[in-house]
């Protein structure tokens, strides 16, 4: 097995999923942290300043490219693996064990991931496209606003108020965060095992951390559209 074959072997493909998965977990922490500025209840001033920082700092813009690369690797490898997994049992069982031997969400990572991909397309269309491509390619530019730091920045908070004034958008976002929670509930601890990081000394901690992360982070994200819809919609 030569060096490139390592990555195309069954374990190698899973290593790609594990590494990109943990990288995406780290992204979620940053994303949730920055977005939580919206709860400052200051008309979006802190949120808009944070969003401006994320959009103008060169290090973060570089990380954005790496993030897209990691995301694409995770999506394409995940879809390829999901399709491949279906080929190893051409004749199905007449009776299946259901949830007796494994958790339903551990068997449904392809489905949960596909739902997240659909959400991601909607989400990028709502926020990434106008803030990054606004003004070009015929995309409507975002409104601008003076913030307390004395700068004129994109008013992403107003964009959020506009999107989350629609009830169906709020419902889609909340349901997608349900998919994210279950995807993480399996993926978080699974990624560590795939990378060989399993030991009785620290695996129980990783598992507990994974459960806490899988509940808290999607709940925080889900609270955002609900909060806007209930208290700050247009």
């Amino acid at each position: 097995m030569n060096f490139s074959q390592i990555f195309t072997s069954s374990i190698g493909k899973k290593i790609v999923m594990g590494v990109t998965g943990i990288f995406l977990v780290s992204f979620l922490m940053v994303h949730a942290g920055i977005n939580a500025c919206m709860f400052a209840n200051d008309g979006g001033d802190l949120f808009n300043r944070a969003a401006h920082f994320m959009g103008s700092n060169w290090l973060i813009r570089t990380m954005e490219i790496i993030l897209f690369a990691g995301l694409l690797a995770h999506i394409f490898q995940g879809l390829a693996l999901t399709l491949d997994h279906k080929t190893h049992r051409p004749v199905k069982y007449a009776v299946n064990p259901g949830n007796e031997t494994s958790k339903w969400y551990s068997r449904s990572m392809g489905l949960l991931g596909t739902l997240l991909l659909m959400f991601l397309i909607i989400h990028l269309y709502h926020f990434w496209t106008p803030s990054r491509l606004g003004g070009s390619f015929g995309v409507q530019p975002l409104a601008e606003k003076w913030v307390s730091s004395g700068e004129m920045v994109h008013d992403l908070y107003a964009e959020m108020q506009e999107e989350f004034s629609e009830l169906w958008v709020v419902i889609v976002y909340v349901l997608a965060m349900g998919s994210l929670a279950y995807h993480l509930l399996h993926g978080f601890q699974s990624a560590f095992r795939t990378l060989g990081l399993s030991h009785k000394k620290y695996t129980p901690t990783i598992e507990k951390l994974g459960v806490a992360f899988s509940i808290l982070v999607p709940a925080l994200f889900a609270a955002m559209p609900v909060y806007i819809y209930l208290f700050h919609k247009n």
Binding site: S10, K14, L81, H85, T87, S102, K103, S106, R107
Partner: peptide, 10 residues
């Protein structure tokens, strides 16, 4: 022709 492991624990 065996599949890869997705850590379901079955």
């Amino acid at each position: 022709g065996f599949g890869s492991c997705t850590n379901t624990g079955a």
